[in-house]
Amino acid sequence: MTITRPIEAPRQSPATSKPPAARQRGRGPRDRRAALGFLAPNLVGFLCFTLIPIGASLVLSFFEWPLLGEAVFTGLANFIELFTSDPVFWQVVGNTFYFVAGYVVLNLIVSLALALWLTSRVRWKGFYRFVFFLPVVSPMVANAVVWRLLYTPDDGLIAWFSTTFTGSPGPNWLGSSEWAMPAVILMSVWAGFGYNMIIFIAGIEGIPRSLYEAGELDGAGWWRRTLNITLPLLTPSLFFATVMTVISSLQVFAQPFILTGGGPGSSTTTLVFYLYQKGFQAYEMGYASAIAWSLFVLIMFITIIQFRSQKKWVHYS
Rank of each mutant, 00 (worst) to 15 (best):
V92K: 08
L238K: 06
E8T: 02
T245K: 05
G206K: 11
G265A: 06
A191P: 15
F49A: 04
W173G: 00
V72I: 12
A77V: 06
W90N: 05
L108H: 08
G156N: 03
I199T: 02
R225K: 08
M1Q: 10
L114I: 02
I247T: 03
K125C: 03
K312D: 05
V44L: 04
E70I: 07
I158V: 12
G37E: 05
I7H: 15
L149Q: 11
A183Y: 13
N42V: 12
G75E: 14
R25K: 11
G156Q: 11
L51I: 13
L114P: 09
I198K: 14
V110P: 13
A180T: 00
G192R: 05
V59D: 02
G265Y: 14
L250E: 08
F79N: 10
Q251W: 12
N143I: 02
W65R: 07
L186T: 01
V131K: 10
I185D: 07
T260Q: 05
T163G: 12
S294Y: 12
F130K: 10
L227S: 00
V105E: 07
P29E: 07
P41V: 06
S162K: 10
I304T: 10
P182V: 03
I7Y: 15
S57C: 06
L67N: 12
P53M: 14
F73H: 15
T119I: 00
P169Y: 05
